Amino acid sequence: MTRSNNFNPQESPVCLLLIATMTACSLLALKNQRLFFAAILHPVTVNRKKEYYRLFSSDLIHNDVVHLFVNVFALFAVGSQLEEYLRSVNTMGSFWFAVIYLCSCVCGTFFTFLRHRNDIEFSSAGASGSVLGCMMSFMILQPYHIAFYMPLIGGVINMYAALIYIVFLILYQIKAANPLVNNEVHFYGALGGMVCALVFKA
């Protein structure tokens, strides 16, 4: 896959900061098991010990390098373009991008927490919900914009980019058999991104 336009780092500072933070935190957590388990979303622990920081920290860590790479690439390919677009139509575009990402994150983890707050065996990690929220937001704002190019397929517009991303996540989950990949976070995160896009358009 490749991006659909020339990349200008000055037009997507928040996205690049998120990518750098996510990568650093994930690599540290993969090397430090204690840190990893202290940061994952474990709803029972959040509920009993009031460790609400996990609603955010779980977004910054990943189960393995493949999981990290998929999310970092998707955020770079689509998230940076979303921020560039928002900056082109609004003087507070980077702020709006941060709002979309944060709302996607919180919606994904909070509603998952509510559903599983009494399930001792449930836990999850990764930024997939936040990334998918950004994709769905961009789809609403610019449905026919080419998100990226794929070999043999060519340009993939925003209307289909999220679907391809979900397929990649499902294939990864099947191959890795990793229970920490949370499909509920994907759904709620996507809803959060869509709501933010509708508010922005209003």
Rank of each mutant, 00 (worst) to 15 (best):
H145E: 08
R34S: 01
A38Y: 10
R87S: 06
S26I: 00
V156A: 05
A20W: 02
E184D: 12
R3I: 07
V99A: 13
L60P: 02
L180S: 03
Q81K: 07
V89L: 11
F37V: 14
Y52E: 10
T2A: 10
G154R: 02
V70I: 12
N90W: 14
N63W: 10
G126P: 03
S124K: 04
V167E: 06
E121N: 13
Y144P: 12
L68N: 01
K201T: 06
M159H: 12
N158C: 07
A147E: 02
T91G: 15
M135I: 04
V131Y: 00
V66E: 05
G133P: 09
P9L: 08
D119G: 03
S123F: 14
V46S: 00
Y160N: 13
I100S: 05
G133K: 05
V65I: 06
R115P: 03
V70A: 02
F168S: 05
I40R: 02
L41A: 09
E11A: 14
Q10D: 09
Y172G: 03
F76W: 05
C103G: 12
N5R: 11
G108K: 01
F111K: 06
H42W: 14
V46P: 02
K201A: 07
V14M: 10
E83H: 07
N178G: 07
V66S: 12
V78I: 15
T21V: 15
L18K: 05
V156W: 01
M1L: 12
S123G: 14
H186D: 10
I157W: 08
K175Y: 09
C15M: 05
P151E: 01
V65H: 02
V46Y: 05
S123Q: 11
S12Y: 09
S88Q: 09
G93D: 03
Y85V: 01
A147H: 03
N183F: 12
A190H: 00
C196S: 06
G129E: 08
T23S: 11
T45S: 07
A20N: 00
R117Q: 15
V65P: 06
R87Y: 05
N63H: 12
I140M: 03
A29V: 03
I170M: 05
